[in-house]
């Protein structure tokens, strides 16, 4: 499968959200975005931007407790699922929360802590790794696999 990688720096939370907003505006439906990074790296901030760019009617909040938040927008019936793998472990858990059903639809799926359910995730995806560069700055590494993710990454350039 064709893959591509890009690296970007974000100087603060606001910039992370702006990057997310650009990604959100480019989503067509059916994408899987995997956001990987430690506590405080900015995964939820990036998702907040993605939700805004995509047009979510409800603000994006942490789904850690409820595990899956379903978001709607006014434009059409497309949904954005915000999933948190923080408490999940392995394919069995992913199946219990119904992740497989979300992943094969026409909706957008954004998943935090994707490494916890890695075996349940399809290979076609945009994998974003958020690393601490210093206290404020984060390094975002984008790994795209598959045609849809590659097109998304190119559009972001």
């Amino acid at each position: 499968m064709e893959t591509a990688t890009r690296v970007a720096l974000s100087r603060n939370v606001a910039e992370t959200e702006q990057i997310g907003e650009r990604i959100g505006a480019l989503l067509r439906g059916g994408e899987l975005l995997c956001l990987s990074g430690d506590l405080g790296a900015g995964k939820t901030a990036l998702t907040r931007g993605i939700g805004r760019g995509w047009g979510a009617l409800e603000p994006i909040t942490s789904p850690t407790f409820t595990l899956i938040h379903e978001h709607h927008r006014a434009r059409d019936g497309q949904k954005l699922y915000h999933v948190d793998g923080y408490r999940l472990s392995g394919a069995a858990d992913a199946w219990t929360v119904g992740l497989d059903e979300l992943l094969h639809g026409e909706d957008v799926v954004v998943i935090e802590w994707p490494e916890n359910v890695a075996e349940a995730l399809p290979e076609e995806r945009l994998w974003v790794t958020l690393d601490f560069f210093d206290d404020e700055t984060r390094q975002l590494t984008f790994n795209a696999s598959g045609a849809q993710a590659l097109a998304l990454l190119r559009a972001l350039d």
């Binding site: 990074g37 430690d38 506590l39 405080g40 901030a45 802590w113 601490f132 210093d134």
Partner: peptide, 23 residues
């Protein structure tokens, strides 16, 4: 409360802590 969590992280971890922790 997200910023508070990050502030605590900064206060307790060594500076420029970039290494990822096993979950």
């Amino acid at each position: 409360f997200s910023g508070l969590k990050t502030a605590v992280l900064r206060a307790v971890q060594p500076p420029h802590h970039g290494k990822r922790q096993p979950k």
